[in-house]
Simulated scan of single mutants.
Amino acid sequence: MTIAIGERLPQATFKEKTADGAVELSTDDLFKGKRVVLFAVPGAFTPTCTLNHLPGYLENRDAILGRGVDDIAVISVNDWHVMGAWAEQSGGMGKIHFLADWNAAFTKAIGLDADLSAGGLGVRSKRYSMLVEDGVVKSLNVEENPGQATVSAAAAMIEQL
């Protein structure tokens, strides 16, 4: 069952690449007492994710933070090495969190997993964005088509803020 507005995010652990190597971050580390924009992509370095979805959030980072948001994070079912390389290549390192949900545990727990095996990707995340306040989902925008980033795009999130 897909997580709904008003529900609390489940406890999970993510990995993120930093200058000191991989660090583990819990759901509480990321969301407790904070207002956070979280968006998910089916895969780092994939076309829509790299050319459209991520750039919108990087370009609009200041506008999003200027609306009372404490942090922005992107999550993908990839390992932390891939997410770290994507952060570096995109220029996003240190600007937003690049979270690796390496085993899709969080993605499955919130019911936003997708079997993209037909495209050679295996189990991945649906493309979505959400506003989370103190661990509770305040808005949720799930794309119908993983190849599009419209309802989950940065511009759409800014309108919701």
Rank of each mutant, 00 (worst) to 15 (best):
T2S: 14
A4E: 14
I5N: 14
G6F: 03
P10A: 00
Q11P: 03
A12W: 00
K15H: 15
T18E: 13
A19E: 15
A19C: 05
A19I: 15
D20H: 15
A22V: 15
V23T: 13
S26R: 07
S26W: 07
T27H: 05
D29C: 09
D29W: 06
L30T: 04
F31K: 03
K32F: 08
K32M: 04
G33T: 01
K34D: 07
R35C: 02
V37N: 00
L38C: 05
F39R: 03
V41S: 10
A44Q: 10
P47A: 05
P47S: 06
T50N: 13
T50S: 13
N52V: 01
H53R: 00
L54R: 04
Y57F: 09
E59L: 09
R61D: 12
A63W: 01
A63R: 10
I64A: 10
L65F: 01
D71Y: 01
A73Q: 00
A73P: 02
V74F: 05
I75R: 08
S76G: 15
S76F: 09
V77F: 09
N78G: 05
D79I: 02
W80L: 10
G84D: 09
A85I: 01
A85R: 11
A87Q: 04
A87M: 08
E88D: 14
G91Q: 09
M93W: 12
K95M: 13
I96E: 09
I96A: 13
I96K: 10
H97W: 14
A100G: 11
A100Q: 06
W102K: 10
A105V: 10
F106S: 04
F106I: 04
F106W: 00
T107E: 00
T107V: 03
T107N: 01
I110Q: 06
G111C: 00
D113L: 12
A114N: 10
A114F: 13
D115I: 10
S117T: 08
A118E: 08
G119I: 11
L121G: 05
G122P: 05
V123C: 11
V123G: 08
K126Q: 15
K126C: 12
R127K: 13
R127P: 06
Y128S: 10
V132M: 12
D134S: 13
G135C: 01
V136W: 06
V136C: 12
K138C: 06
S139E: 14
N141I: 08
V142A: 13
E143C: 02
E144C: 07
P146W: 01
Q148I: 14
Q148T: 15
A149V: 00
T150W: 07
T150S: 14
V151C: 13
S152V: 02
A154E: 04
I158V: 07
I158Q: 02
E159S: 11
